[in-house]
Amino acid sequence: MDSNGPIDYLPIAITVLVAGGFVVTTMFVSNILGPKRKGKIKLDTFECGIESQGNARIPFSIKYFLAAILFVLFDVEVIFLYPWAVDFRKLGMDGFWEMISYMGVILIGFFYILKKGALKWDTD
């Protein structure tokens, strides 16, 4: 694989500048152009036309949190696989079986969380 120097990342810096500049300018311009007629009711949060009840800083289902934690676990595992996938042919059959056993361990954990019902959405 060919190597990269810092110079290859310079265009990304230019892209970041262009995109960032565009976003900031557009936000600013649209703020200037629009009319400004504020009112108490207008600045209320929208709740289907009825008076809003409390605010949205409320507890939400733990399932979302579980999904996020599981994502972190599995994404880290996916990242471990990338270097292996690039050098996959060089590592040959030995590397393949090692990775299969690694994936096997991961899969045991995966079936454990499935059986535990961590991803069951239709209960409660």
Partner: peptide, 11 residues
């Protein structure tokens, strides 16, 4: 989109 009022809710 540019000409519309920007509304930022109070809360």
């Amino acid at each position: 989109m540019f000409m519309k009022e920007e509304i930022i809710p109070q809360v």
